[in-house]
Design a protein around this nucleic acid. Structure first.
Length: 340
DNA sequence: CGCGTTTGACCCGCGC
DNA sequence: GCGCGGGTCAAACGCG
């Protein structure tokens, strides 16, 4: 199991790198005038790109000086024109580069999604059949199913039959359960909509209690990530092996809501990454804000990776039912790979 | 004064 | 059975 986690970490790193590169390029391209897609900043990357730009400027200035020495007194206008041309050319080049990087991100996200599906399948196989009954990949589109199958063939880790079973089972899922799952998934995805989430997660099952569990890894500066629901802290504990305390929150949107979440700030690997584990299913509809974010996040995931980077740019008017394209029954799913 | 957070005590499951 | 560790409770405290 640890090897699987390592695989996910590897993916996370690559995604963040791509994200940073694009962000740095965008900064360099428009000087940060564009509306920021993420509130969180990686200042060092921006600085690097600015330094590059300055270095280019210095180079251009040096070239200009050389020109001035070799030619006969060009007018100031000519010099400015030259600089302008060079800058415009540079800008065009960076735009092109930006486009290419976006394509790379696009491909990477597709690969990432495939891997998530594969990971869910692998974990499905690890569980007893009794648990698999509750597993579901949600109402995937035929393309997504194909992708998953292709991935399965490539790895030889899962078989199409099992995937098909899962798909068929979810059509019999109790609507209430599906709502619960949507809520579960929504909670995690709301962070996407908030632009805070950098990675998605893993799921886990508590065999003893059989409670639904979804964990979300989010890059978040604050003590807790805003997922649209109201939470009340009811306890805090220092877990062994992690110097950072684990906080326990309870959903206060509705009295008696069984949903709890635990947050663990992982100090050792990355202080900025917050691992949030949601447990249980809501016994109430999600707040409007949370639902909107959830559906927005859903559309962002199922559409372009750019909207993944900036979920608010995605169409927020998509119906909540869109969520079922990657949510599932009883709290589990392809992406989160959840189980009950 | 009400609500949320903090924190020590308690409970319970699990491994030995 | 015992010890350990995670999870929860509830009184105390702080803040608006």
């Amino acid at each position: 199991m640890s090897s699987k986690r390592q695989r996910i970490r590897h993916i996370d790193l690559s995604l963040e790198t791509a994200d940073d590169e694009v962000r740095a390029l965008e900064e360099a391209e428009d000087g940060g005038d564009q509306e920021e897609e993420e509130e969180e900043k990686e200042g060092c990357e921006v600085l690097i790109s600015n330094e590059d730009e300055e270095a280019n400027k210095h180079q251009e200035e040096n070239q200009t000086e050389e020109k001035e020495q070799s030619y006969e007194k060009p007018t100031a206008k000519d010099v400015i024109k030259d600089e302008l041309c060079v800058l415009q050319a540079e800008m065009e080049r960076m735009k092109e580069e930006n486009r290419m990087l976006q394509e790379v991100i696009d491909r990477t996200m597709n690969d990432y999604y495939d891997l998530q599906m594969k990971f869910a399948d692998i974990q499905q196989e690890d569980q007893p059949k009794e648990h698999q009954v509750f597993l579901s990949l949600g109402r995937q589109s035929s393309d997504e199913i194909k992708q998953a199958k292709v991935a399965d063939r490539g790895s030889g880790l899962a078989d199409d039959e099992e995937l098909g079973l899962s798909l068929s089972l979810q059509t019999h899922v109790d609507p209430h359960q599906r709502d619960d799952a949507r809520e579960e998934k929504g909670k995690g995805l709301q962070s996407w909509a908030a632009g805070e989430l950098t990675t998605i997660t893993s799921q886990s099952i508590n065999p003893a209690t059989r409670k639904t569990r979804v964990s979300v890894r989010a890059r978040c500066q604050g003590p807790t990530m805003n997922d649209g629901c109201q939470w009340r802290k009811y306890g805090q504990k220092v877990a062994k092996g992690n110097p950072c305390p684990r906080a326990y929150y309870r959903c206060t949107v509705a009295p008696g809501c069984p949903v709890r979440k635990q947050q663990v700030q992982r100090c050792l690997e990355d202080m900025s990454i917050l691992v949030t584990t949601y447990e249980g299913t809501h016994n109430h509809p999600l707040p409007v804000g949370a639902t909107a974010m959830a559906s927005t996040a859903a559309s962002s995931l199922s559409s372009s990776p750019l909207s993944y980077l900036s979920p608010y740019l995605a169409n927020p008017s998509l119906p909540l039912s869109t969520m079922s394209s990657f949510t599932s029954s009883a709290g589990y799913s392809g992406i989160f790979g959840g189980r009950q």
